[in-house]
Amino acid sequence: MQPFEYHRASSLEDALRQGALEGASYLAGGTTLVDLMRIGVMRPGRLIDLRDVSELHGFDTGGETLRFGALASMAEVADDIVLRQDYPALAESLLLAASAQLRNMATVGGNLLQRTRCLYYRDTRYSACNKRNPGSGCAAQDGVNRQHAVLGGSERCIATMPSDWAVALTAFDAAVEVAGPQGRRTVPIDSFHIPYGEHPEAETALRPGEILTAILVPASRAGRASCYVKVRDRESYAFAVSSAAVALRLEGARVAEARIALGGLSTTPWRAVASETLLRGRTIDEASIREAAARAMDGADPRPGNAFKVELGRRTVEDALLRAMRRAQEGEAA
């Protein structure tokens, strides 16, 4: 690990001042950063620890806008009774991620900034990684690419975005609040993770020195009939091979609102717009769900190692829609 200076920020202003210094990186839960520093992928010369910045803590799941301070832990948010009842997809996306230990450490803000699990990105013995060494190529294109993206990739990078929480937030049109040297701004979640064009090394809309301060979710009546389905290589404690966050609002038997976002399949959280459009106004049943799920992977560009993900993605969406439908119907019956 490269040596670094450590500073514990006393306030947001202090953090922003320190974060402007050369080689600075912000430290929250540390579960990504410390790991990547140890294996030499990230090499900050200065860590600015945010844990004592009180305004970054806490969350509120009532009201017209749900607000999650960036430093709220995954565990405390996942355990929130209101969230579990009114937005099960959000709570489940956190509960199905990582382990109990990591959820105690990791923060809901840091979760959106976690780095890809691409084996070539994490292994510095491979020089060809456009994320780690911009312009060096992408070893995953012809390598072991079972875990890689079939949506949103390019010949420059096919690394998946690993966050489950980001996928659920995308389904609910969340926004990310950031503070920086030039003041505060809000970024919609669907433009927070940047699609891989020419520069796969640029992952998020955060500018140098900026701090993610909070996550905002507009209240949604589709929240109660929502779910997060995660397909993994083992039953627990693994990253998604494929996942879907789905929320439905029914009027009688018709779909008034369908929200569908995909994870594990794409380079950024992926909104299945064609599936949503197809369901809107339709009678909800197994046939319409199957038809909608069939469109979820439109535009997929698989590699030999991950071609199975195209069908897996459709089935994940179908499963999630069926579960959300049952939740919606139970909600009406109750």
């Binding site: 450590y6 514990r8 540390g30 579960t31 410390v34 860590l47 620890d49 565990a75 230990q101 450490m105």
Partner: peptide
């Protein structure tokens, strides 16, 4: 999880925690 300890009553992975933090 072999490194699990409690910090303020919460279980954490000590291997991913900097001592200064």
């Amino acid at each position: 999880g072999a490194c699990t300890v409690l910090a303020d009553g919460k279980r954490i992975n000590a291997c991913l925690t900097l001592a200064v933090a």
